[in-house]
C-alpha cells in the first residue's frame, strides 16, 4: 500500500510561513505528505463502522463543542440555563453537560489529530489561506465562517460528522438531503468568495 501514500502534487503552497516557534520536540520530524484520499476515506469508513458496530453511535463533533460551551455557560449563569428549554436538556439543575459520550469522543479527536500531526511533522503554528488574502482577513473570515457553521450545525441537528458521515452510512434520508444541501450551499457561494482561496 505504500505506493498509495506517495502522491506528488500534494505539497502545500509556499504562501504559508511559520510565525511562531514550537518546542523542538514537536517539530523535529520531517513533514510527510498526506495519505491518498481513497486510503484516508477507507480508514475513516472503518473507524465509522467500528463506532456503530461497538457502540451503536456514529461519530460527531459539533455536539461535543456544544456541550463544552454549555458547561461554561452553566458555570457563569446557571439560572439562565434553567430558563432556556434547549439548554435545560443538557445542563438543567445538577445535570453535567459534559457527562455524555460525545465529549470523550471529541477529546479523543483532538488528541488523535495532535498525534497524527506530530508523527508526520505537521505541527506548525500557521494560518492556512489562499495567496491573495491577508492573514488577518483570513482569521476574520475563519471566525465568521465558523459562526455560520456552528449555527447551521445545531439547526440541522448535526454537523458533517454527525449527520453527513454517520447518517449517510446508515442511510438516513434526512442526512442525505442535508449532505446535498451542504455541498449545494458551498458551491453556490464558492464563486463569490473565490478571492479567499485563489
Amino acid at each position: 500500500m505504500s505506493t498509495i501514500s506517495e502522491i506528488p502534487n500534494q505539497g502545500r503552497p509556499s504562501s504559508l510561513k511559520r510565525s511562531f516557534a514550537l518546542p523542538k520536540i514537536l517539530t523535529r520530524r520531517e513533514t510527510k505528505p498526506y495519505v491518498h484520499p481513497y486510503l484516508g476515506g477507507t480508514l475513516l469508513g472503518i473507524v465509522l463502522f467500528l463506532a456503530f458496530f461497538i457502540t451503536g453511535n456514529g461519530l460527531g463533533a459539533s455536539g461535543g463543542l456544544n456541550r463544552i460551551l454549555v458547561y461554561v455557560e452553566d458555570r457563569i449563569a446557571p439560572d439562565h440555563i434553567d430558563q432556556v428549554p434547549y439548554l435545560i436538556t443538557m445542563a438543567g439543575g445538577e445535570l453535567n453537560p459534559l457527562d455524555n459520550w460525545i465529549v470523550p469522543l471529541v477529546a479523543g479527536t483532538l488528541i488523535g489529530g495532535f498525534v497524527a500531526g506530530w508523527m508526520h511533522g505537521r505541527l506548525k503554528v500557521e494560518t492556512g489561506k489562499g495567496p491573495n488574502i491577508s492573514t488577518r482577513s483570513r482569521w476574520l473570515f475563519a471566525f465568521i465562517g465558523g459562526s455560520f457553521m456552528g449555527f447551521g450545525a445545531r439547526m440541522a441537528r448535526g454537523c458533517t460528522s454527525g449527520q453527513a458521515l454517520s447518517g449517510g452510512a446508515t442511510l438516513s434520508l434526512g442526512s442525505w438531503a442535508f449532505m446535498f444541501a451542504v455541498f449545494g450551499g458551498a458551491y453556490a457561494l464558492a464563486y463569490f468568495v473565490r478571492k479567499l482561496w485563489n
Binding site: G113, F114, F178, L189
Partner: peptide, 27 residues
C-alpha cells in the same frame, strides 16, 4: 436549511466542526 447555512460556513471559513478540531490540535 441548516445544511445550506453550513455550506456557507464551509466555503467562508474553510473547515467543518470536526476538521477544525484537528486544525486546532495541529496549531
Amino acid at each position: 436549511l441548516g445544511g445550506l447555512i453550513m455550506g456557507v460556513g464551509f466555503i467562508v471559513g474553510g473547515f467543518c466542526p470536526g476538521t477544525s478540531l484537528v486544525a486546532v490540535s495541529t496549531f
